[in-house]
């Protein structure tokens, strides 16, 4: 089941390179703040398509029409994520506050327990927030559904907590591996160019600068958008895995 999700998502995100480039251009302007929300809004659309679609089906990539709608969806997604992540942060601060007021071994022990609890709650909060966003998308964008904790818990119970967490962690690993491998490959290619150029007596610094530029461009315009669509699609498909 998990591998099916990954396979479908990897193929799905590679459907249209134009979409990736458009997302990359939006990402380039995200320092203006508003485009950043367009990107989260687009990912929300991907989730929306996934939760209403079927795995290994012929779902199309969502379009870029109606940017205002996309922006508002993006704001919704960010609010949901922030509100869920506040919980582990508060737990961490409470422990840090208590640990700061006691001394000696108790302090370190408390801090350790606090970090562990924060980690567990943090993973749960990440998962819940993703599932909450999926649940919101499934219920036609009703904001309150993102915080219907008991319903979301039921959904995760039906999929199975273990599968959910496994899929989530696998997702993170795939994202990291792909980005590291691509960056390393381009780096190696340009290093080889540079070395061979240096052997032939040319100044290699230009080649290295070019390599860095190409690397940034590829990760921004191709790999980054690809991975973000991949992640959203996977979470959306995971949501549809209820019995």
């Amino acid at each position: 089941m998990i591998l099916d999700i990954y396979k479908d998502s990897l193929e799905y995100s590679a459907k249209d390179w134009k979409t990736l480039v458009i997302l990359g251009v939006i990402c380039l302007f995200s320092f203006l703040l508003l485009p950043a929300f367009l990107i989260t809004g687009y990912n929300y659309r991907v989730i929306n398509t996934a939760v209403h679609g079927i795995i290994n089906g012929r779902d199309p990539l969502p379009g870029f029409d109606d940017p205002i709608d996309m922006f508002v969806d993006g704001v919704k997604v960010v609010i949901v994520q922030v509100l869920y992540l506040i919980v582990p942060m508060i737990i961490f601060f409470v422990f840090a506050l208590i640990a700061g007021n006691v001394s000696g071994v108790a302090s370190s022990a408390l801090m350790l327990i606090g970090c562990l609890i924060t980690l567990i709650v943090g993973v749960a909060a990440c998962l819940m927030s993703q599932m909450g966003i999926c649940h919101m998308a499934y219920n036609d964008g009703a904001f309150s559904k993102a915080f219907a904790l008991s319903e979301i818990k039921e959904v995760i119970d039906e999929i199975g907590w273990f599968e959910c967490i496994l899929t989530y962690i696998g997702l993170i690993i795939i994202v990291i591996v792909i980005s590291v491998v691509v960056t390393a490959l381009i780096g190696i290619i340009f290093t080889l160019f540079g070395i061979s150029g240096a052997v032939l007596g040319a100044d290699p610094s230009g080649v290295f600068v070019l390599g860095a530029l190409v690397n940034t461009a590829i990760s921004m315009f191709i790999v980054g958008p690809y991975l973000s669509i991949f992640a959203s699609r996977s979470m959306g498909l995971l949501y549809t895995m209820q019995i």
Binding site: I68, D69, V72, K76, G141, A142
Partner: peptide, 13 residues
């Protein structure tokens, strides 16, 4: 309306 936030979208347009 599907969601009350639709009126925000409508307002922005």
């Amino acid at each position: 309306m599907a969601s009350i936030t639709d009126c925000v979208v409508e307002g922005l347009k």
